[in-house]
């Protein structure tokens, strides 16, 4: 009988643990959000977070976007659109980058670069008792560590997405005009004519949501890390996995919300 029930028990334990984690993450995220609006505010920490999450992510975001935009142009051109390529390629590159690839790729790059770094930093602070030290020095770790990073991500990741969208479209433009022989003016006109304001707004909203997910996951797994180097490693890995999956799931939900008819 035990042999038959053991797998069910394991499944039950895993399900309960999963549900408990969802609950804990939700409470953590809500708590972090409320701390953004309640003093004291740590301007220096916020400025550092803006620099780390925004400015220092620009190279990886730019390179990802330009190569993706270029590859997208080649794929569309090669995929049967030759009959009206000069119109179709810029339109699909623009809509593909702005609606989907820009936000998702920037979100994933931020998850890889920023979530991992936040989780590793906070987890190391936890195992070396720096978070306990913060508390004894009358400084709330959620206010000092989480709120500035979350606020910075909510503000700066949409900016990164906007920049990524532009660079991605430019990548498509470069490939189309230099390699495929399109007329530059026509390419730009087709791009601008086809894009709508709602495309851009949806892209920026996705950026804010993905930024929030990336920062929250980094902080949550960092604060809840296990002991020692292994604990830090596990927290970092789990934070990136969770952020990436949640970003993709949120992207699906937001796309359904914005564009399903």
């Amino acid at each position: 009988m035990m042999v038959l029930t053991a797998p069910l028990a394991a499944l039950g334990r895993a399900t309960l643990a999963f549900l408990a984690t969802i609950g804990q993450v939700t409470i953590f995220a809500l708590s972090a959000l409320t701390h953004i609006f309640r003093p004291p505010f740590y301007a220096r920490e916020f400025a550092n977070a803006l620099l780390n999450i925004g400015w220092l992510s620009l190279p990886v975001v730019g390179l990802t976007a330009i190569f993706t935009g270029g590859a997208l142009a080649l794929q569309i051109y090669d995929g049967g659109s030759r009959f009206s390529a000069e119109a179709v390629v810029p339109q699909i590159v623009a809509i593909g980058m702005v609606r989907e690839l820009g936000p998702v790729l920037v979100g994933l790059m931020v998850a890889a670069r920023v979530t991992s770094s936040i989780a590793a930093e906070i987890a190391t602070m936890k195992v070396t008792e720096q978070i306990d030290a913060l508390t004894t020095l009358s400084t709330h770790p959620m206010k000092y560590l989480t709120a500035p990073r979350l606020l910075a991500a909510l503000i700066v990741v949409p900016v990164l997405v906007g920049i990524g969208d532009i660079i991605g479209i430019y990548g498509g433009f470069l490939v189309s005009t230099q390699q495929l022989g399109f007329n530059p003016a026509t390419y730009v006109r087709n791009t601008v004519d086809f894009l709508q304001q709602s495309d851009i707004i949806s892209s920026l909203i996705k950026g804010a949501v993905f930024g929030g997910i990336a920062a929250t996951m980094g902080c949550y797994y960092g604060m809840n890390s296990g002991r020692g180097a292994q604990g830090v490693g596990r927290a970092t890995k789990a934070s990136v996995q969770a952020a990436a999956v949640l970003i993709l799931a949120a992207n699906f939900l937001l796309t359904s919300l914005f564009f399903s008819t």
């Binding site: 550092n48 190391t124 602070m125 070396t128 008792e129 720096q130 306990d132 030290a133 004894t136 009358s138």
Partner: peptide, 21 residues
């Protein structure tokens, strides 16, 4: 009052727990 309470204490941690940054 938690802040007032903690303001009465100082603590030396085992590993120092200095803030790296």
């Amino acid at each position: 009052d938690r802040d007032a309470f903690l303001a009465r204490f100082g603590m030396l941690f085992q590993g120092g727990a200095l803030f790296d940054s």
